[in-house]
Design a protein around this nucleic acid. Structure first.
Length: 371
DNA sequence: GTCGCCTGTTGTGGTTGCGCTCGGG
DNA sequence: CCCCGAGCGCAACCACAACAGGCGA
């Protein structure tokens, strides 16, 4: 985006910070802080789907990231820039630019999870190095090595991604319990406002980590397996930054759930939903281990049964699965996958065309009259 | 290793009918 | 509480071109 565009990129809520997100339901541009504030007020707001703001028009949800121009683009702007005839900022050959879809989210994701959406390796904290090196502001492309980078790519052995076999567009559908979603690739999708994003995320991250310290931990740990770090990045705990309103109630409903969706607007049924996967029937072994959490099998609702563990205490100590449990979990997951239905996806356009032109009798295909 | 042939499998859309839920009597 | 009708959602059905994989030349 050009500098002239920055003026119209102010957050609609605070009017001060640079807006980085777009909420379709509210038709509003928001900075990260206001987004969290606005969408944590009640469970209905939390269901609003938000996406990064288009770098070109500053008015719509970005659905694609152009790797050549490093721009986040909404569908209209992508069409303008990359259609064959389009003048486009990239000049000629725009149609050949490599683009990839950008994920949005609903709910109230933690900073770690937002980083997952952006595909950012590192927040650029200068403080206690969690991953080893200091990881500069530019963390995106390079060798990075910030803590989130480690989390993204060296997932703990609790449930490996390979175990769960999640192909293609479902790739963000199911993840190990404490691992933020993997980016499509390691290049960040921050577009033209990466520095501002990281700045705002750093501000957001501070209260989260402080909260952990208040819980009794005295300082950040270098250990990736430390409960502090794991919990900070646990989806179930992402309400840490916005739970001051109705802690229990909000937790009970879906405030802690957030879903990753592709920006064509459809929320994948398998979207990352901690209440259904991490603790739910799709993770039966985990369920067995945490009898304090009850489920209604026919829905995705999760009701926490009063227990001696306060909400903020770590409800899910990481327990490795034995092979039998693992196989059982995988087979149940696969079985459930089979019965799921998603939005219509045409694999072969030629077959669609053929089917549409077919002769039908009461909706059924009829034999062709070859005479 | 490559090519062509053969055979079995897959995927496509509009309509229908079944099963379920809900509201009224 | 029970029954009935309306409304809704979803799976099954169909034919056949396209696809995938195996096999031999």
């Amino acid at each position: 985006m050009t500098k002239a565009g920055r003026g119209k990129r102010l957050c609609d809520y605070c009017g001060e910070a640079t807006a980085l997100l777009h909420c379709r339901a509210d038709s509003a541009k928001l900075c990260f802080a206001c987004d969290r504030e606005v969408h944590s007020t009640n469970p209905l707001f939390a269901k609003h789907s938000r996406s990064l703001l288009c770098d070109s028009c500053d008015a719509a949800s970005a659905s694609l990231f152009c790797e050549a121009e490093r721009l986040l683009l909404c569908q209209n702007c992508d069409w303008d820039r990359h259609s064959d005839g389009g003048g486009g900022g990239g000049g000629g050959g725009g149609a050949a630019h490599n683009r990839r879809p950008v994920e949005g989210f609903v709910g109230c994701p933690s900073v770690g999870e937002i980083l997952g959406i952006l595909g950012v390796d590192d927040l650029g904290f200068k403080g206690p190095p969690l991953g080893g090196d200091e990881g500069g502001d530019d963390g995106g492309g390079g060798g990075g090595g910030g803590f989130s980078d480690v989390l993204l790519w060296e997932t703990p052995a609790f449930v490996s991604l390979d175990d769960l076999i999640v192909p293609r567009e479902d790739a963000c559908a199911l993840r190990a319990v404490d691992v933020p979603p993997l980016p499509k690739n390691r290049n960040a999708t921050c577009g033209q406002h990466k520095k501002e994003m990281l700045r705002q995320l750093r501000l957001l991250a501070k209260p989260e980590s402080n909260l952990d310290f208040e819980r009794g931990e005295t300082e950040p740990s270098d250990d990736l397996d430390s409960p502090v770090l794991n919990q900070a990045l646990q989806p179930a705990n992402m309400h840490s930054g916005c739970e001051d309103r109705d802690q229990v109630g909000f937790h009970k409903i879906e405030a802690t759930d957030f879903q990753w969706f592709s920006n064509d607007g459809d929320t994948r049924n398998q979207a990352y939903d901690p209440s259904t996967f991490s603790y739910g029937e799709e993770s039966p072994t985990a369920l067995d281990k945490y009898p304090n959490i009850s489920f209604q099998s026919s829905t995705n609702e999760c009701h926490e049964v009063p227990s001696e563990h306060p909400v903020n205490s770590n409800p899910l100590p990481l327990v490795p699965l034995n092979s039998q449990e693992r196989e059982s979990a995988i087979s149940r997951y696969k079985e459930k996958r089979k019965t799921r239905r998603y939005d219509k996806h045409i694999r072969y356009e030629s077959r669609k065309v053929r089917a549409e032109s077919r002769i039908r009798v009461k909706g059924r295909f009829a034999k062709m009259d070859r005479t």
